[in-house]
């Protein structure tokens, strides 16, 4: 578990080149027209036992609101460290977010799952809005979210 976390931290830091074990993937997330301000999103991976393995992306820059991404926030122990290079702006209703990142080969077809927590100001929090298993075959097949995420897909 500890080694996987380290691998994630390395591979998601896009400044480090030449990792033979990693490959680039693109995660595409489209939001619903939910009628609110920009959504905060946390993208993170859990292991086959459902334990938190690492964060891959956070959309939304103000850490004081991270508590509303409740499942992710609690999984990180309320202290999400090491996300400095992997945060971006919040995502507006109806908008699409594309993230390119290097993900370790070892994560695919091994029971790991990509989750998205979502939260919008003055609206309900949506922990685990969508979850999608990381498999070689699953690439390109979109998954529907519960509240804010219209579709989540990754391509290799």
């Amino acid at each position: 578990m500890k080694s996987i976390f380290a691998a994630l931290a390395l591979t998601t830091a896009l400044t480090l080149p030449g990792l033979a074990m990693a490959r680039p993937i693109t995660v595409t997330t489209t939001l619903n027209q939910y009628g609110g301000d920009g959504a905060y999103l946390a993208f993170y991976v859990t292991d086959p036992q459902g334990k938190y393995a690492g964060t891959v992306w956070v959309a939304g820059g103000k850490s004081k609101y991270y508590g509303h991404l409740s499942a992710w926030y609690r999984a990180t122990g309320g202290n999400p460290s090491g996300i400095d290079g992997i945060t971006g702006a919040s995502v507006g209703a109806g908008r699409t977010l594309e993230i390119s990142l290097d993900l370790a080969d070892a994560l695919f077809d091994a029971g790991y799952t990509l989750h998205v927590d979502a939260a919008v100001e003055d609206m309900r929090d949506s922990p685990n809005d969508v979850a999608i298993p990381l498999t070689s075959d699953g690439a390109g097949t979109p998954a529907r979210g519960r509240l804010y995420v219209a579709s989540l897909a990754y391509s290799r």
Binding site: K62, K64, G78
Partner: peptide
């Protein structure tokens, strides 16, 4: 100032798990 995280008023963390 609070919005831009200039004040030490973030939620106290971590909660002993």
């Amino acid at each position: 100032a609070s919005t831009f995280d200039l004040l030490p008023d973030e939620a106290a963390s971590p909660i002993a798990q």
